[in-house]
Amino acid sequence: MGNALRFLYGQCCNPTADSDHSLGHHGVSTSTVGVSALAHDLYHFEITSQVPEGLGKHVVSSKKAQVNWYKKLSEAWRESKPPPKTPEEASRLVIHSLKRHKKADVEGLLAFYGLPLPHSLVELSSVGPPSSDAPGLKFELQTLPVDGKAVADGDTVTVYVSTMDPRESSCVPRDVQVAAVQRSKARAKKNYPKADELHKMIVDSGYRVLNIQNEEILARKYRIRLRGIDAPEGSMPYGKEAKEELTKIIQGKCLRVFVFDQDRYGRSVGDIYCNGIFVQEVMLKKGMAWHYTAYDRRSELEKWEKEARAERIGLWASSNPEMPWEWRKNRREGR
């Protein structure tokens, strides 16, 4: 199958790699059972010409037909550059490769791997990130992998940027640099109370020492407000779903954030891109946010919201969903 499948098999399909999560029917964690398990089975098929056991319980076609599917999927995977990395990308590859086959079989195959079903996918545009001279663009951030717990709601996330980044390295406060060095020495001497005291000072200064792949990295904290959208608040209908959707998109990923403004709460207001995907587009097309027209007049955002409204997707399943800015105003006024 080639390096792409071997890499995914080795990195994602090791049953002992993620012992903190329950194992799926392929012996991998529930968080990796989709793309990695499909990669494993395609790699195995290339060697043995055998389809996975248990698939017949999810599909209606014969074993001979299943073999033909895996031939097509193997070819499609080899030809895709780059190969699928997310459940959505893997799901689209399956749907496109088997588009002439029965709907029940395609959905059964996707369900077997825990991949998104056709109705839950949205077609994304080819809108690229803004150019360096885009009107109002102040700066760009390249973040470290995002912790899912850092997602506050459907339109706000806390990210960290390594102080080794050229933009950050020149502006780290001297006392933070000194504290980071002293903390490292305290930990080496197993003086953990002192190390914790120093880290608290670092955190209070807007920084944090993160452990990423067994390497300690001093990073600066940024709170990001997604530009141009307003998601339901946590206690509103679809508030929980919006937060979960944003978490699913960005958790564990390094992001490109294009900052255009700062709001009254000190958050950086910007566009977020994750593996080339414009995050605001996904949130709007999945009906997990409103176009925030009071602060953003971009026509594409308006178009994506209208598409979700027309399809009655997400929060638009309700005939008259409450606007989050009106909800907040009513709460402030005690209504």
Rank of each mutant, 00 (worst) to 15 (best):
T158A: 11
V157I: 13
T156M: 09
G108S: 10
G128W: 00
R174M: 10
R174N: 10
F112V: 05
S131N: 09
T143M: 02
P173E: 15
G148L: 05
P116K: 03
G136T: 11
E107K: 12
T158M: 10
L141Q: 03
H101V: 11
S126Q: 12
V127N: 04
T156I: 08
P145F: 02
V106E: 01
L121A: 10
E168A: 05
Y160T: 03
L117F: 06
Y113R: 12
D147N: 06
F139E: 10
L93A: 05
L98F: 11
I95C: 03
V146G: 00
G114E: 07
P129L: 07
S132N: 11
A134R: 07
T156N: 13
E140L: 14
L121F: 08
P173C: 13
V157W: 03
P129I: 07
G128E: 13
V122G: 03
R174P: 00
V94C: 09
M164A: 13
L93E: 02
D133Q: 14
D105N: 15
P129G: 08
Q142S: 12
D105P: 14
R174V: 10
Y160R: 04
T163C: 14
P130F: 04
L110G: 00
G128S: 15
L124T: 05
V161F: 00
T156Q: 09
P145S: 02
K102I: 08
Y160G: 02
L93I: 05
V122A: 09
P129K: 08
S132P: 00
L141R: 02
G114D: 07
V94H: 02
V106A: 08
E140M: 15
R167D: 12
P118G: 07
L109C: 05
D147S: 04
P145A: 04
G136Q: 11
S126W: 04
E140A: 14
L93K: 02
D133C: 12
T158Q: 13
P166K: 14
V146C: 04
